[in-house]
Write a protein that binds this DNA or RNA. Sequence first.
DNA 1: GTCTATAGATCGATAGAC
DNA 2: GTCTATCGATCTATAGAC
Lengths: 188, 188
Amino acid sequence: MTREVAERHDAIAAVAEVFREHGYAGSSLTAITQQTGLGKGSLYHFFPNGKQEMAEAVLEDVSAWFEENVFLALRDSEAPARGIEQMFEAVDRYFRSGERICLLGAFALGDSREPFERVIHRYFSSWTEALAEALLRTGFTAPKAAEMAEEVVVGIQGALVLARSRQDPQVFTRTLQRLRRRIPTIQS
Amino acid sequence: MTREVAERHDAIAAVAEVFREHGYAGSSLTAITQQTGLGKGSLYHFFPNGKQEMAEAVLEDVSAWFEENVFLALRDSEAPARGIEQMFEAVDRYFRSGERICLLGAFALGDSREPFERVIHRYFSSWTEALAEALLRTGFTAPKAAEMAEEVVVGIQGALVLARSRQDPQVFTRTLQRLRRRIPTIQS
DNA sequence: GTCTATAGATCGATAGAC
DNA sequence: GTCTATCGATCTATAGAC
């Protein structure tokens, strides 16, 4: 059983790369078998509902990573400023300083947003809300905290769009720096 | 001839809606024939290179709209502040206050960015550069103008991602307001 | 669990009548 | 210019051997 879970999880990471490159509709099972090294039989063993279940698993996996590595630190009520700093570091690492896109953002703009609406909505809500509460704890007023949290998440997503569009990852690192500077308690 | 161009252009607008809803790979010719009301014969008459040419025409059409209704006003060296104000108004109108996505942003994140790389790159470069020069003319220093221009375009694109993700168009209008306030000469 | 073979539908694109 | 008919390829998904 441990082995089964481990291999399914390995498959998820490989499938994610295909979706990242070709989108949902553009990812054929042929491409997925090649990237994962698994035959269709194995894929349907792990994901009985086929392509849609693969995408669900991938989006859940990304969400879980952010839950563990980003939102959790933001919810740490003891050290809100440190949590925010950890968020910026984790985000920069995850998106490879602008060379990687956000699958949940891409799915939100792209084909077939509907089947994954719930996961997408939860991801962005969790992020914005956890950040707003952390900002509140650093001394922001409630409305300012909400506004700044939205500004940060908007900025990160927009920077990923522009970095990809202009093929210039530095748009992303510049944006992260600018957002950091706008939060007084963490500008170190 | 006038009639031919006019009808091709009508087709472009209808095709754009299909791409907006299903992305590139997800837009089947069947869906396009239904939305346009044209048979495949007519579509291939207008777009001999098929689906790819349809997408090129759509992206060029969007670019042309921004060129005329946004970038042109920004380049008016006589009234930079008024040009920037016009940009915000046109952008709010075009994206229907957050209910519509940016096709060029969606194509940048999604499948098949590669064939359209040039158009996408030009769109975002033109926008950022025209805005930076307008900001320069309102009194910003060169580096501050470039930074603010990037912040505005990043903010608009990110707000469109979040508005769609959270199914809350107000994220977009709030972001536009926030960006406006950050440009001293136009906060009216 | 993993494979091959293949079903059945749909894909983009073309041909040719009108 | 617009239509219908259809091609060949490719698609997702399933069946069944091992």
